Simulated assay, not measured.
Amino acid sequence: MSTRLEVATEVGAPLERVWDELVDWYGQARWIPLTTLRVLSARDAGLGVRVTALSGFWLGRLPAGLLDRFVVTGWSPPADGVAELEVLHLGPCFTGEGVFRLTADGGRTRVRAVELFTVPGGPLPNRLVGLALPLMRLGLGWSLRRLAAVAEVPRAERRA
């Protein structure tokens, strides 16, 4: 039994700018609260990139929080008004697929995130996740609005 989480938002920034923020793994802490990412692969862009994300904090080498290990399975940078990032979540807290689809609309960008995932432990934990889905939707929506706020500030201004 899988859970589907879907959220969308509008960003007042061009597609290329939103894409740059989305795939800036280390910069995701600016828009995903309490989250740090570590790139585990030799490169940090394109298919096959492996990342560990922790929503929480590290106690030395031990994670305290929600740990997500994922690999990039789809990498379609902006072209013809569309961009898409696909990841495969490998666990340990959940497994499944995630897709970020960006669509240009003039100087704006529509961002749609879809996560289809399963938590370990069988039907009961997955039913409990289903009960928490409204809160998860709020959290992902809040993160996407923060992504919008970050992308709407030109990089040169942000560094100042």
Score class of each variant (00 low, 15 high):
G60E: 02
G46T: 09
D105S: 14
P33H: 14
H89I: 13
T95L: 09
V49N: 00
A29Y: 00
G106W: 05
V7D: 03
L102I: 10
D80M: 03
R50D: 10
E84T: 14
R17A: 14
L66W: 14
E6W: 02
D105Q: 13
P78Y: 04
D44R: 13
F70L: 15
V49E: 01
W75E: 09
E84D: 06
G122P: 04
T35Y: 01
A53Y: 01
V87R: 05
P77R: 00
A104S: 12
L22G: 08
A53R: 06
G107I: 01
V7P: 02
H89L: 13
T103I: 08
D80G: 15
D20S: 15
A8I: 00
T103M: 04
G60H: 04
V18Q: 02
E115A: 15
D20M: 03
L102E: 09
P14G: 11
T73C: 03
S76N: 13
P14L: 00
S76K: 13
G122M: 04
P78D: 07
P63M: 08
L15W: 01
V87T: 10
E97L: 15
R69I: 10
V111G: 06
G60A: 06
L85H: 02
G74Y: 00
C93M: 14
A53Q: 09
L88C: 12
L37P: 00
W31I: 10
G48Q: 06
P77K: 03
E86W: 04
T36M: 05
D20Y: 01
G74M: 05
V99A: 13
A64V: 15
R50I: 07
E6A: 15
W58Q: 12
G122Y: 01
A8T: 13
R112T: 14
D24K: 06
P78W: 03
Y26K: 14
G27V: 07
F117N: 06
R110G: 12
